[in-house]
Design a protein around this nucleic acid. Structure first.
Lengths: 215, 215
DNA sequence: CAACTATATGAATGATCCTTCATCTTTTGA
DNA sequence: TCAAAAGATGAAGGATCATTCATATAGTTG
């Protein structure tokens, strides 16, 4: 993974006029579109600016460098998904296991599908920024939320909540990614949620039983 | 995803003297090391050649371009993993479900851990070459092998084998990636296999039950 | 050893990119 | 209305890269 170089990542100017708010949004969206149509290795600041209908200079007024832009886009996506899962976890507090899984899986899939373009575009960015604090942070947010939720299940108890919630969270990633990238069987697109519920619930019930047996 | 440009990807010269066999191996290994230490966006043909202890020109004698090199490295890794899983699936033919899962998970984890460096280095490459035929092909190989195996289970039967085996295969990816990238809870490293077995077996048993119920 | 083939070299070429900054335009607020 | 602040422009500088090719070296074969 790239040694996270010490570059400023914060946004330069905070848009205050409405005109610039539009500009920033356009740059944001343009970055995603360029990623989708050209791929990460052809994403250049000039191309993003062009697509956004502004000049390169303008882009650099809001992001100190290319990496900062990519970070911002990735951050917003991850935060969106993490927040959705956190909400779902909170709402399913003190419910039976099956309700919990349903709630979380639905939220996760919904968040990913609502931002399908972003999601597809950002797999490469996330991989490139592999060591990035962002992925780590989002994972931790989700892990913590799930662990908290699971600890309140009315019909199940677990040994190591950290591990169980980590497995829960990461198990959903692979199948979903495949569907978004259209590498999965066509039919799965429509029944992904059901399958993910089966996957996670099957695991969690099994772990809960194992915990009981272990005393 | 990058529009898979029409560039030659085949290796240029097939090494015949023993000296060049060494060279090619060195280039291969160097590519992985550069990926690990510098990241994809700092992988240059010159850097790879340097690390391999040869000149750039030499590299271009065996790979027509940078993309071809990356493809070759990714291909070898994916083929290795796919083959390991295929073997495991074949060996577990006509066994009970739990043996099948154990066999496949063990093979998968073993293949990934034995080539840990490769695996870690190539996540970014695979993402970059997103639409790459390679990932698709490896997925299909594994999917087919798993479906064939599952169809012979002595104690279980499934509705849609394509979907079930796809879920089986992709469910393993997320947790494993997290462990390799050290984003998972420390402890999981040692018990990953057991957890993956629990995850996949929990899902498969559940799907088998659902099939029986559906008549 | 001599001729031929395989392999290796690395400076040079041509492209592409990131980033800056002097200059211009628009908005704001008094 | 108009000066100051905010926003926008894009040509140009400076770097990095992928790739080529003329040349040199090592291995093979007869």
């Amino acid at each position: 993974m790239p040694p996270s170089s010490v570059l400023p990542l914060a946004s330069r100017r905070s848009p205050s006029q409405s005109r610039s708010v539009v500009t920033v949004a356009a740059i944001f969206e343009a970055a995603i579109q360029v990623l989708l149509k050209e791929g990460m290795h052809r994403l250049t600041t000039t191309r993003v600016a062009e697509r956004a209908g502004v000049s390169v200079g303008t882009l650099y007024q809001y992001y100190p460098n290319k990496l900062a832009l990519l970070n911002a886009v990735l951050e917003r996506h991850l935060d969106g998904v993490a927040e959705a899962v956190e909400d779902a976890a909170r709402k399913a507090n003190a419910k039976p296991l099956s309700s919990m899984v349903e709630s979380v899986v639905n939220a996760f899939v919904k968040a990913k599908i609502e931002r399908e373009d972003e999601a597809r575009a950002l797999y490469a960015v996330a991989a490139e920024l592999g060591g990035s604090v962002l992925v780590q942070r989002a994972s931790e947010r989700v892990g913590t939320a799930l662990a908290q939720m699971l600890s309140t299940a009315v019909d199940a108890q677990f040994g190591n909540l950290d591990i169980v919630s980590y497995m829960f969270a990461t198990a959903m990633v692979g199948p979903t990614k495949g569907v978004l990238e259209e590498q999965a069987p066509r039919k799965l697109t429509r029944i992904l949620r059901g399958q993910l519920i089966s996957l996670c619930l099957g695991y969690l019930e099994r772990e809960a039983r194992a915990f009981v047996r272990a005393g």
